[in-house]
Nucleic acid binder design. Structure first.
Lengths: 143, 143
DNA sequence: TATTGTTATACTCTATAACTATA
DNA sequence: TATAGTTATAGAGTATAACAATA
């Protein structure tokens, strides 16, 4: 099967390019002074809507006690609201404040801007190649 | 200019897909027990050849005292050799041992394998789209 | 008893400041 | 004096274990 060597080369090169590009994108994050773990928790709430602390911890792949600290810092900064679950007194629901939504919007805008400024410098063919590969990348990312 | 809205959408979607895929790739790292900072220092030595502790710290974007600790752990594990610079007694050159090279090779192999296993499940068209976009991604990553 | 979340405590990785050796 | 690297100490951010409240 002659395609297998090509597939493994593609995997290798795609992995390296993805990691390098992700590193560049990460370095472009806005300097809003918010630690990465806190920002990531806010982004999860933005994507999924209000969540319990436990669900957030599971999603962010950290332990509940660690999430307790992250949430304490976010509450202190006025980025989240917590309301007790009326059906289960043990649980809470954590949601974003308007302040948090504004911060997320600004953060995304800054990072999109940097990448967009690179994209306008590409040829139409290169942009088309990216657009064609995008749905495939999304499938891989969600696997 | 009708293309500008499309370009900014592409930037946004490409950024999200890249970050998500990078996260999945990172989570696939081999469980060799080596902390990420140590592994990253080894990878830098592998890419650039022997370096001084100061140059390594600069490359990894950490402070020299932090690199001192990383290097102490790597030396303890038998992953690096240190030779004094004959021309300047203040400096050293840090290089990889064979053990480190084997570890890096194994680590890459495991991550490539995971991605390759996803790629073989794609259609030929999807793989072709990725292959066509790859050089463009590499340009972006190096910008 | 089991589950949700918090508190207490410790470990890892990073930092700044002070120190040693060499240029 | 200036530079390369280390040692001392401290600050984030994470973890495990033990605890309180609720189901």
């Amino acid at each position: 099967m002659p395609g297998s060597a090509v597939t493994s080369d593609l995997a290798h090169d795609l992995r390296l390019a993805t990691m390098r590009l992700a590193r560049r994108l990460r370095s472009q994050r806005a300097d809003h002074g918010l630690p990465l773990g806190q920002l990531s928790a806010l982004a999860a709430l933005d994507r999924h809507g209000p969540l319990t602390p436990g669900a957030l911890a599971q999603h962010e792949q950290i332990r509940p006690p660690s999430m307790t600290k992250v949430l304490a810092a976010l509450a202190e900064g006025g980025y989240i609201d917590r309301v007790p679950d009326p059906h289960d007194g043990r649980q809470q629901l954590v949601s974003l404040t308007d302040k948090a939504r504004r911060l997320l919007r600004e953060d995304r805008r800054r990072r999109d801007e940097w990448l967009a400024s690179l994209l306008v410098g590409l040829s139409d063919d290169d942009r088309a190649a990216l657009a064609a590969a995008l749905p495939v990348l999304e499938v891989l990312a969600d696997s």
